[in-house]
Write a protein that binds this DNA or RNA. Structure first.
Lengths: 205, 205
DNA sequence: AAGACAATCTACTCACCAGTAGAAAATAGA
DNA sequence: TCTATTTTCTACTGGTGAGTAGATTGTCTT
């Protein structure tokens, strides 16, 4: 049995409602940025999609730069989380790397991950850009560490970790540009297929 | 001995001077687009770098969309040329693919190639976008053909050509985002290294 | 010499859009 | 009930930048 819902909200409810609205703004914004591009999307457009007016957005977020910055930060947090999860995983280096790469690719086909890939530094303010870079560097270094671990335990071929990380990141970022969310192939199968060809290379064995 | 240069120009000289100026506009524009981004670069900025005024640019090119479109078209032509050259190369499929990929990566670290990668469709007008897509599709299909040839002659591992092409393109486009032209590593060595890790994969042999 | 054409300039217009002022309505707390 | 706070609106400002009008100067062609 539920208790009859009161129309009066507790402070917790109010604050989480506020949070939900903020999130809705970011979600609408990121989808529109991905569809038409950041510069082709005005905050009036975002507001219209949500059925509110532009000042409402400014009530929840400081300015357009902050909207974009929060979007990419969400995406980057998801990637960092994935890196952390793989680091703690048991198993050989290559298995942990593969798990990470697969998740990495999947995130990059999702709203916020796509936005990370599609956002070039110049779109952000100098301050946001700096933090954007710092977060991306963290992810790059996590990927390199996983690679080094695998080379050490012999489960990954002895290649230059830096070059491998660039190659992998590039290949797995790319779907953010071409993958159609409405398409038939699911992100999970695309991710698995891409990781598979990258692991094996194209030289026959 | 040179003949004393006449201050009067032949029609050929005049028309090639015009072409040279047009090219100079595109070269200046593409470099600024790559440095600060298309939307952060006004045609006034480009004109200023060339020491002329904005209407001078409009004398050589129709509008800003056309400036960008010509830039990406130059880059895409270079890529198509590389594809054509590899197609006609003798040797096994894998060697021809590797030659193409290496050149592909190098072009993507050059002015116009970088612009191709960094330009997202939304920045172009619908008409230009359509041609942009058509050219990119040509390059993609050339790459897939090289892959299929190699699989057929047994020099390339039997993988899904589509997925492999996506993975390779992504990995070799990525330097357009991170490579610093002023940096120590040359495009040629980066290209070779990337192709090497992609050919071998990261699973040990 | 006269008219056409090429190259370039200064000085505009016009649309768009980020961001703000200030009011109105609702809600909360005293 | 009265005041403070939150949420939201309409209506504005101000800057930027694409693109144009029209003049100027020089250079061919006839």
């Amino acid at each position: 049995m539920e208790s009859p819902p009161s129309p009066f909200q507790t402070p917790q409810q109010r604050s989480s409602a506020r949070q939900a609205k903020r999130d809705a703004v970011l979600r609408a914004a990121v989808q529109m940025f991905n569809e038409r591009g950041f510069h082709q999307t005005s905050l009036d457009d975002v507001a219209a999609r949500l059925g509110v007016s532009k000042p409402t957005i400014y009530h929840y977020l400081g300015n357009k730069d902050q909207v974009l910055f929060e979007c990419v930060t969400i995406g980057l947090s998801q990637l960092l989380e994935a890196a952390e999860a793989s680091r703690q995983r048991p198993g050989q280096g290559i298995d942990r790397l593969i798990a990470f790469l697969t998740r990495y690719a999947e995130i990059n086909m999702d709203d916020f991950g796509r936005c990370v890939v599609r956002t070039s530094d110049e779109a952000l303010s100098p301050e946001s850009r700096q933090q954007f870079h710092a977060l991306k560097r963290q992810i790059d270094s996590a990927m390199r560490q996983l690679i080094r671990d695998g080379i050490e335990d012999g489960s990954i071929a002895p290649v230059d970790p830096k070059m491998l990380a660039f190659a992998l990141a590039g290949a797995l970022n790319w779907p953010a540009r071409w993958h159609n969310p409405q398409g038939a192939e699911t992100p999970a199968t695309i991710a698995a297929d891409l990781v598979h060809v990258l692991a094996g290379g194209f030289r026959p064995r």
